[in-house]
Amino acid sequence: MDSLLELEHLEVEFDTWDGRVRVLDGVSFSLAAGETLGIVGESGCGKSMTALAIMGLVPTPAGHITGGSIRFAGEDLVRAPQARLRQLRGNRIAMIFQEPMTSLNPVFTVGEQIAEAAREHLGLSGTESRHRSVEMLRAVHIPEAEKRVDEYPHQFSGGMRQRVMIAMALACEPQVLIADEPTTALDVTVQAQIFDLLQELRETKGTAIVLITHDMGAIAEMTDRVIVMYAGRRVEEGAVEDILDRPAHPYTRGLLACRPQLQLGKGAVRPALREIPGVVPPLHLLGRGCAFAERCPDAMPRCRDERPVETVVRAGHAAACWLLDERREAA
């Protein structure tokens, strides 16, 4: 499969009061045209930073990409000049954010905010770009698009604003759409609508999607492949069925166990909500070993001393855990 977007051993470091901290440590994945890739993990594990790095928006001056590559259609974005990145951003690669309430500029009409990208990248005129805005609002199923195009963000509900964000991101028909927790701030019913919309757009426009989330339900419904991140590292990668049904890494198993289970009926026992004990460690305190060792129920002495290498479990499914290595040796 030809990959459209390919990350190889991406490293991002931040200057902090505690010194230089590596927030992304050798993250790799590849995304084919039209594919949907899920990135899961707890807060602070580097999901959003991965997205920002792809967009060339790692916060400066504190953050730096210090290693690895991001290839988009063969072009290395890490080494590309800012001007080139700007041509791609919002044009070939677009992004939608977690907070639709604050991600739209309150002082411009939604139409203007959608049209802007089309004028910038497609060279459309004022009238053409306005038509484009209306067309995009229709595509994301906003009723009375001709009228609402001149309204301001505060006149829209949360779900509608996220639709506007999607319309804005898709205005130039990007090949890759990065959705960073697009439904976290929304009502459950609205969440489903937004996912349906993303599915539909992927099917009609063939846009490849990187879906960043901690919602395993969304992963199951939306994605083809999944990478699991922990403390800035990729700990597992695989097809969505493998990750959900046969997780190989203890962290992935922990994440899956945390899902609340719904049971109906009179005699249903309400199972206790599971959680992974502990929190993601401060990145500057990570030891030489596995980042998850401190919280891992199956940790061995080796896990604290040596960083686990990635082991292929089956075709397209790999995890970085010493347990897999042990098993193979035992077998």
Binding site: A94, F97, S103, E120
Partner: peptide, 10 residues
Amino acid sequence: DYVRTARAKG
């Protein structure tokens, strides 16, 4: 956030 959006727009 909206300034980040504007940057993400290119």
